[in-house]
Each structure stands twice: as C-alpha cells, then as structure tokens.
Amino acid sequence: MSLLEVRGVMVRFGGVMAVGGIDLDAEVGQVSGLIGPNGAGKTTLFNVISGMQEPTAGQVFVSGVDITREAPHRRAKRGLARTFQRLELFSSLTVRDNVRVAAELAAVPDVDGTVDNLLDKVGLSHLSASVAGDLPTGSARLVEIARALATMPRLLLLDEPASGLDDSETERLGGLLRELAADGLGVLLVEHDMDLVMHVCDRIHVLDLGNIIAVGTPSEIQHDDAVLQAYLGTS
C-alpha cells in the first residue's frame, strides 16, 4: 500500500479535459517528480489531491483510506501538506507567525522549538521577524515550505518550489528534499527546473495534455521517446 494512491482521477472543466484518468503513486521516503509542459494538468492534479478541486471521476487514497470527498482541512490532519505555485503566504503576518500558525494547527508539543527548528532548516532564521508580504519570491517559497513542514506532514506536495530561487537556494532546497525523504517523508514535486528534478527524484511521472505518458527513474525518463516528443515536439 502506497502512501498516496491516485486512481483514475479525471477533471473536466466544461468541454476541456484538464486531467484525463490518471493513476499515480507516491511512496514513503521517496521524492516523486511530476513534470510536464505548461497546461499539462499538474496543478489541477495537486488541487484534487489537496481537496481544493473535486474530481469529475476517480479516487484519491492516503495510506489506503479514500479521501476523495474529504474537506481540505481534514486531509491536512491525515498528513497532507502542500505549497502553492502562486504564493499563498499569510502576507500580513511575520515569517515566524506564518510557520507558527501551521504548527499550532497541528498541535505540535513544542511550538516555539519546532518553528525555530524549521526556520533554521530552510535558512530563514534571520528573517523571522519580517512581514511575509515584504519577502522576495525566493524567500517566500521557502517560508511556504517551512509552513507546510510545520504541520508535521507525511506527504508533502510541492508546486514549483524552485521558481524564483537562485542557484545556491535551489541547491539547498535539493539537499533539504533528500534530507526530508531520508527522514521518511513522502514528497511529490512539480518542478520545471530539470536539473533539480533529475537530481533529487527517485521516480518521475511525466504528464502531457492531462495524461501520464511516462513513469520511471530519472535516467529512464531522460531517454524516453514519448517524453522527448512532448517536450520538443514531433519532428
């Protein structure tokens, strides 16, 4: 039984098929990648998994429990956490309070300790008193990650966490993701930075026009014909 199982999930917006019957798994202790061209349906799939979008058909299971109809906040209690492609920080709270809200919601025993720890982990301790709305995109993304981690998740969904990060920040993020996986967390990563994806993922799913066209290890994916076609177009 996988940590996350997506079974036959389909999302239709009027006449447009955004996601067309996808199966996907994410495992404990692994970083799973989800890549694909713009408009492939990656964010829609994330919205289905986190409960912000009801699928037209299909089911989502976490540790074998069907959560397809559960409200987002209940899914969080089951260990699901996510970040957003378009930043969704609590922009009038400080960086510290952003993370603190999440830790309080998860009722962690030592809120202050947890918050300090996480800010340190993502390298933002020096910004803890800044108002989140004032941060540059790179730091803001890291706050979102720290905030998601403060809910003590078992599965972390990251939607383009490296966009807006500079090279050293991206490298640090890669290290952090491997570290989290080593601690037993499952990570599902949507990302356009191929270096990062190929570097940190154990398995990669390639999505195109709402369908999964390939699944495999980074090296398998790099040599897959269908993938090359989707990214480069048919010759």
Partner: peptide, 16 residues
Amino acid sequence: VALKDSPAAAATLGMS
C-alpha cells in the same frame, strides 16, 4: 489573520 490572507493555505494547513 491567516483566514483573511489566504483561506486556501489556511485550509490546506488543517484549519477549519
């Protein structure tokens, strides 16, 4: 304040 700033984030973090 979290509710005002981002209901989506608040809900996915576990807030009713």
